Computed example of a mutant assay.
Amino acid sequence: MISTKVQEDQAVMVVHTLGPKGTNCEKAGFLWLENQGLQGEVKLYETLEEALLHVKETENSVLLGCAVYPFLHNIVFENLLDLQIIDSFVMPTYNMVFAVKQNTREPDVKIVASHPAPAHLAKLFSDHVDLVSSNSQAALACASGAADGCITTIKAAHENHLHVIKDFGEVPMCFTIHGKSEGGSR
């Protein structure tokens, strides 16, 4: 059963999720804490798989996943003895954009950095798509010159001083909350 509120006996204080700063997952983590009326923090990791390890090792913590995260099904089914989905919610993402470094013209874009989930959008601009671990990481790759353009969030584009070429808008997105199973093993 999916609940809209965590049971009162679960004092969740730490949400472990995908980073770096500026990801949709970070935004969703803070929103979830607020909606639950909980004081807590959001810890960020390079992958959800890395975050998952910390959830298993710590008390009062959950994993926040994104429904379009590649291999979320592996996280669910490979951890059935330890974790279960305890909540889910829909939140609009930051606007998803195609961005480039300042003074880069669209015809000069050869390599586009993208998280695997929105990679189809990257193919609208180049046949050479470099996959990275998050939308924020895509912006960092573009800003550092490792890619000529990126599919990222408007927040990450602005924070990395990128020029937005195309704004795809917000995407209503489902986020999942994974908590420890009662009694540990089933």
Rank of each mutant, 00 (worst) to 15 (best):
E59P: 01
S88G: 05
M96V: 15
F77S: 14
T93S: 14
K56L: 10
P92V: 00
E50W: 01
L64G: 07
V62F: 01
L81V: 04
E50A: 12
T93C: 14
Y69A: 14
M91V: 11
V68L: 11
M96W: 06
I86N: 09
P70K: 11
I85W: 02
H73R: 13
F77R: 15
Y69F: 07
L63H: 03
F77T: 12
M91F: 12
M96F: 08
F77W: 12
M91N: 04
E57V: 00
Y94R: 10
D87N: 09
V76G: 03
Q84G: 09
N74C: 11
I86M: 05
S61V: 02
I85L: 02
S88Q: 09
L63A: 06
E49D: 13
L83D: 13
A67W: 02
I86T: 11
A67I: 02
L52Q: 12
D87H: 03
L48T: 04
I85R: 15
L48H: 10
Q84C: 04
L72D: 15
L83G: 10
N60M: 02
P92F: 00
E78I: 00
I86E: 13
N60C: 03
L53I: 09
E49T: 03
E59N: 08
E78G: 04
E50H: 04
E57F: 00
K56F: 01
E49M: 09
L72E: 15
E57K: 08
T58S: 12
E50L: 12
L52P: 00
L52V: 01
